[in-house]
Amino acid sequence: MATPYEKRRQRKLFLTIVLPAFAGAVALSLVAISQTQVYAYAPSTLPSPQELGDRDVRLAGLVAEDSLRTGADTNVTFTITDGKAGVPVSFDGILPALVAENEGIIAQGKMGPDGIFRADNVLARHDENYEAPEVIKALEEAAEQGPAY
């Protein structure tokens, strides 16, 4: 049977070593989660470049008609729209084969100070019956807000 002195010593050990280590692990986990979170926005709900800062976000919507342009090398520009607003996008890379005008798309990247979204990654729907949940949600949110006047 443990003496009162040994119980006190075990309690002190717990409070000085185990509890701070646990609190540190929780804090590190929360920081890691907050740094890896990527929010999805529709073009009409996208915050300003100043509000976004240097944070990675996803932009979900449809590729606007007559906006898909290929430039030098692998540079591609297009506009993502939700029917209310459009955001110009610049992407340097090879687009997925299913990226086309009036088709659902998700671009992940950063908003430039010039108002052009610079995508690091572009995702497209993968068959005729599938629509990405982010695209559906973004389009529904834009429809709920009503027309922009």
Rank of each mutant, 00 (worst) to 15 (best):
A2C: 02
A2L: 15
T3F: 01
Y5S: 09
E6S: 15
E6G: 04
R8N: 11
Q10R: 13
R11N: 07
K12N: 07
L15I: 07
T16A: 12
I17C: 10
I17G: 06
V18R: 08
F22W: 04
V26N: 02
A27H: 07
A27G: 12
V31Q: 03
A32P: 03
A32N: 02
I33T: 08
Q35K: 11
Q37N: 11
Q37T: 14
V38I: 10
A40V: 08
A40W: 06
A42H: 02
A42R: 01
L46D: 09
S48T: 13
L52I: 15
D54N: 14
V57H: 01
L62A: 03
S67N: 09
G71D: 06
G71V: 09
T74A: 13
N75G: 00
T77R: 15
T79G: 01
T79Q: 12
I80T: 11
D82M: 01
D82Q: 04
V87S: 06
V89G: 02
D92T: 08
G93V: 00
G93D: 06
A97D: 12
A97E: 13
V99P: 08
A100Y: 05
A100M: 01
E101H: 11
I106Y: 08
G109F: 12
G115V: 05
I116A: 11
A119M: 04
D120H: 05
A124E: 08
R125G: 13
R125Q: 15
E128A: 15
N129S: 13
E131P: 00
E131N: 12
I136H: 11
I136C: 00
K137G: 08
A138I: 10
A138W: 07
L139K: 13
L139H: 02
E141R: 07
E141S: 06
E144A: 12
Q145N: 13
P147C: 00
